[in-house]
């Protein structure tokens, strides 16, 4: 076991350089609510930790012509306390609010939640439903990718060596849009999703759904974007029949495993139930927006 090196650069370029040049295992340290716990329980033994919290632009939330850019080191509590963002993306906030306790959320970040690549990550289904993009800096420059392109399997991301997520970009919101995220856990909090469902939809002036995105967590190796479930809503007024179709499509898309957090059978059933409930809530929010 080598000595652990800790670096806290103040520019994105310096962080990328450190990670790209690391010989052994290197980790980005944002809030550390996963990394530190994994180190403590000997799941990972990194030789380099690159703390990105000292990079000023990664700590910013900025509005860009109706769109929002959220830096990778913005803590969940900072986001929860941002009134404008909360109004625009209540479903994303639903997910963010479920990440651990208030103390944990004071440290934890959405980018960390995404890059930890757990299929049960609470912010990720809502981020995918929102159609959020990530900006990635790396040795070969900056690139953009949709959130759903980041996790590839439990604990693994598509990021190349030296790449870091620097921010999330949320598109400008059309009127009559709403999103929601719900998860099922046996406990009310301090738990990990057995199933999670994020729904984002937009209505036209007549109340017909013009676009929708549905994402499910903890029912496959990565968070699923379920097109069939979204299609069940598009072109409808999101009535009982459409919701029923949505629930069935959500259940049909699940490819879960039996594990300590839930059974296959149970996850498939509850995914449909939660997708339906999340859609109702998103609908309510779209009507009120």
């Amino acid at each position: 076991m080598g000595e652990l090196r800790y670096e806290a650069p103040d520019t994105i370029e310096a962080a990328v350089k450190l990670l790209a040049r690391a010989n052994g295992a290197a980790r980005v340290l944002a809030g550390g609510t996963d990394v530190i716990v994994q180190m403590e329980t000997d799941l990972i033994e990194p030789e380099l930790l690159v703390d990105i919290k000292k990079i000023p632009q990664l700590r910013e939330i900025t509005a860009e012509r109706g769109a929002y850019r959220v830096g990778a080191a913005v803590s969940c509590m900072e986001l929860i306390e941002h009134e404008g963002f909360c109004r625009a993306w209540p479903g994303v906030i639903d997910g963010v609010k479920l990440i651990g306790s208030i103390q944990v959320k004071g440290r934890a970040t959405m980018a960390g939640n995404l890059c930890n690549a757990s299929p049960a990550a609470d912010s990720v289904p809502a981020l995918i439903a929102a159609g959020a993009q990530v900006t990635i800096a790396g040795p070969n420059g900056v690139r953009q990718a949709p959130v759903e392109a980041i996790p590839v399997s439990p604990g693994k991301t598509s990021l190349a060596k030296g790449e870091i997520v620097t921010s999330f970009l949320f598109p400008a919101r059309p009127p009559r849009s709403g999103d929601a995220y719900l998860r099922f856990t046996p406990r009310t909090e301090m738990d990990i999703a057995v199933v999670g469902a994020g729904v984002n939809l937009t209505l036209d002036a007549g109340g017909t759904c013009t676009s929708a995105r549905v994402a499910l967590g903890a029912v496959a190796p990565t968070v699923l974007l379920v097109k069939e479930a979204a299609e069940a809503l598009i072109g409808t007024r999101v009535g009982e029949a459409a919701l029923d179709k949505l629930a069935k499509a959500a259940s049909a898309a699940c490819r879960p495993i039996d594990d300590k957090r839930g059974t296959k059978e149970y996850r498939i059933k509850v995914a449909g139930v939660l997708a339906g409930r999340a859609a109702r809530q998103a609908l309510e929010r779209a009507r009120q927006s």
Binding site: P186, R187, D191, I192, K260
Partner: peptide, 8 residues
Amino acid sequence: FLDYRMPV
């Protein structure tokens, strides 16, 4: 305590 679910 994460997966051994005592009530909170």
